[in-house]
């Protein structure tokens, strides 16, 4: 009898420690990645000033001497992201409202499945589709020399941000207590008044978090933007010009740089910049998501 109990205790002990180990391992690997990123990225600043790196207007990493200013890349990323947000936020939130509030049962199921399917499309496939359909279309409609523009990137990325925005915003709307809606209807409010004056404000922190996470996804996206934004590292003047993003720069140039060169370190430093941007966005989203209702 006692033997059985000690055996059981031992089993519990082992399982507990194993789980602990797994947990620690994941933290350990994240730390390693982070340290590696810092080590390789910060090495750049022994030779290049931080301000020259962040605010430098030209990116010619293989000229002699190399010019490593990433301002055009930062602006490229921000422009494409901003455009994607302008397109995806209104459509995404409206879609969430429709699914959460208006759509009848069947339609709702179909739409939700559709949104999830959209999230499951690999970005390289979206990029490819964008390249053969959207890019020629943009070229024709705006009568441009090339359709590889920030606008094309924004439209394509909007598709990628949409599933995140819709599903999280829909959750937020769905979790608004039903009693608010009943109270408003019982006062004679129309459906739209209820949505606009009560449900959206009540769900606002969740919706903001949804938007932030959608933007986070967009700014870290690489493949599709590399395929359809044209990748020219100049400071963008309009949405209709080619741009190059931070992510595309790393992906495109990683293979051809010499390990240990300034260019190599610069790419890691870009990684740090991206890391900081994503981190800030995620923390902000988290703050919104866990904000206690006042």
């Amino acid at each position: 009898m006692t033997k059985k109990i000690t055996l059981r205790k031992l089993k519990e002990f082992i399982i507990e420690k194993l789980i602990l180990l797994c947990g620690l391992a994941s933290i350990f690997f994240v730390m390693l990645i982070f340290i590696f990123l810092l080590k390789e990225g910060l090495a750049l600043f022994k030779t290049v000033k931080v301000s020259n790196f962040l605010l430098g207007k030209s990116w010619y990493p293989i000229s002699e001497p190399p010019e490593l200013g990433i301002l055009p890349l930062i602006l490229g990323s921000l422009l494409v992201t901003f455009g994607a947000a302008i397109i995806s936020v209104p459509i995404g939130v409206a879609c969430a409202v429709y699914i959460a509030e208006i759509a009848p049962g069947k339609v709702k199921e179909v739409l939700k499945a559709g949104i999830e399917l959209l999230a499951a499309i690999p970005s390289v496939v979206l990029g490819f589709i964008g390249m053969v359909t959207l890019v020629p279309w943009v070229k024709k409609v705006f009568n441009l020399p090339t359709g590889l523009t920030a606008l094309s990137g924004s439209i394509m990325l909007a598709f990628m941000a949409m599933p995140t925005i819709v599903s999280i915003a829909e959750d937020a709307l769905y979790s608004v207590p039903r009693s608010y809606k009943e109270g408003a209807f019982a006062l004679g409010a129309t459906h739209w008044q209820t949505i606009w004056r009560l449900l959206l404000p009540a769900a606002s922190s969740g919706i903001l978090a949804a938007v932030m996470l959608g933007i986070g996804r967009v700014i870290g996206e690489t493949m599709a933007v590399m395929m359809i934004t044209g990748n020219s590292a100049v400071i963008p003047q309009t949405f209709l010009a080619p741009v190059r993003t931070l992510t595309a720069t790393i992906a495109a140039e990683m293979g051809e740089t010499v390990v240990g060169s300034e260019h190599y370190f610069a790419l890691f430093a870009i990684g740090i910049v991206l890391f900081i941007i994503s981190f800030v966005i995620n923390v902000t989203a988290d703050l919104f998501l866990h904000r206690k209702p006042k």
Binding site: P177, S179, Y180, E182, G183, A184, F185, A186, L187, G188, A189, T190, Q193, R197, L198, P201, A202, P293
Partner: peptide, 28 residues
């Protein structure tokens, strides 16, 4: 529903200020 109002089992004020709760009906 404006003429026939309803009070529910669980009090369900809107997540707005006291003032806006009362102004709500006037506004809608």
């Amino acid at each position: 529903r404006k003429k026939v109002g309803m009070v529910f089992q669980r009090p369900n004020p809107f997540p707005l200020s006291v003032y806006e709760n009362i102004a709500f009906g006037i506004k809608i």
